[in-house]
Write a protein that binds this DNA or RNA. Structure first.
Lengths: 187, 187
DNA sequence: CGACCATCTGTAACTAAGTTATGTCTATAA
DNA sequence: TTATAGACATAACTTAGTTACAGATGGTCG
């Protein structure tokens, strides 16, 4: 039942957006009464947290293969692909799309784990150890990519949306180009 | 009365967050009945749109002086200062913090005007015309700065929050460093 | 000057959403 | 076999966005 509710919630989120993520919408789709959310998640807050955590699981599944192959550029492309494929989910995780929801300490740590994967990947890609600070370089990459994606998701990209692919590729390349200054080797 | 309501809404937003931005909270603080929001703004949606527009006005007031003096780095610092001073306001404008709110065409154009100011500033700072594409360079700067600020606002910055100043400065400098490749002169 | 109309404003009610109290049922353990 | 804990439904409560309706206000035209 817990699994059914979570899947129903994700379905509502994907099809109708964060505003439609109501207790009754979810339980109607799951085929149970509103109580289910309280017995299994302790309330709507707990369910949103489950969505948050699930998002980072799915996220990592998309990115870690590219981390392991050392292809940070492709990881950056996969980041955007995931966000565009799950826009409302992304906004719940990063955009405070559900009012009153603040991730718990545990949820924040789960998000930090995803970031740590990136830090490790950057460290692995560093050819001259000591020349760069992997956390700082990773954070710059993370922030840049997140900024591009976030603007695109909320419709604040350029008027000519057709150019977004090219802009993103340009921004990603630029954010990855640490080598000349700080020793990060591009694949 | 319209002014009073808008100021009350901004006050609620600033002090109690986007989740507390309810019709009754606002009208109570403004000292009128709930109807006021409907006569003056057509509903909560219209009021949020007014908040959105007001945000970009205030935003521009903080940034354009630095644009005019040609100091893009200082403009970037002012960007973050504004966001940190008005975190909930920023999230309403850029983070979909109010569910169901999507800026109207007019509001989106107002946001585009703010971006155009940046494009112009980048164009002004370009010493070798033709070497860079001001919209693309401006968008990269915008996206990067936005990414840093957004992560910080939702609490997804580094565990050591004390390092955020330094990280931001580093990211800003990096995003501004177009010169070697594309001819944008740093002040 | 007075009647009229548009606009503003408050009261109260309606619908929907998050939550909780209460009771039933089932399954497991003593 | 009985008792208890957990899952589940029903129904109600509180709060939020919205609207219907009525009174009040203020400017305009005959």
């Amino acid at each position: 039942m817990r699994r059914t509710l979570l899947e129903a919630a994700l379905s509502v989120l994907q099809h109708d957006g964060a505003a439609a993520l109501t207790v009754r919408n979810i339980t109607d789709r799951a085929g149970c009464s509103t109580t289910g959310i309280y017995t299994h998640f302790g309330g709507k807050h707990g369910l949103v947290e489950a969505i948050f955590l699930d998002g980072f699981e799915s996220f990592d599944e998309s990115l870690t293969p590219h981390y392991h192959s050392g292809d940070l550029a492709e990881a950056g492309r996969a980041y955007r692909r995931w966000a565009l494929a799950n826009p409302t989910h992304y906004l719940v995780m990063f955009g405070r799309a559900v009012p009153d929801f603040e991730p718990s300490e545990r949820a924040a740590q789960r998000a930090a784990v995803s970031f740590q994967f990136l830090v490790d990947a950057v460290a692995d890609a560093t050819t001259v150890p000591g020349d760069i600070d992997p956390p700082a370089a990773a954070y710059h990459l993370y922030a840049t990519v997140h900024g591009y994606v976030m603007l695109e998701l909320v419709g604040m990209g350029p008027a000519d949306t057709g150019s977004l692919d090219e802009l993103y590729e340009n921004g990603l390349t630029r954010a990855l180009r640490h080598r000349a200054e700080v020793g990060l080797e591009l694949p």
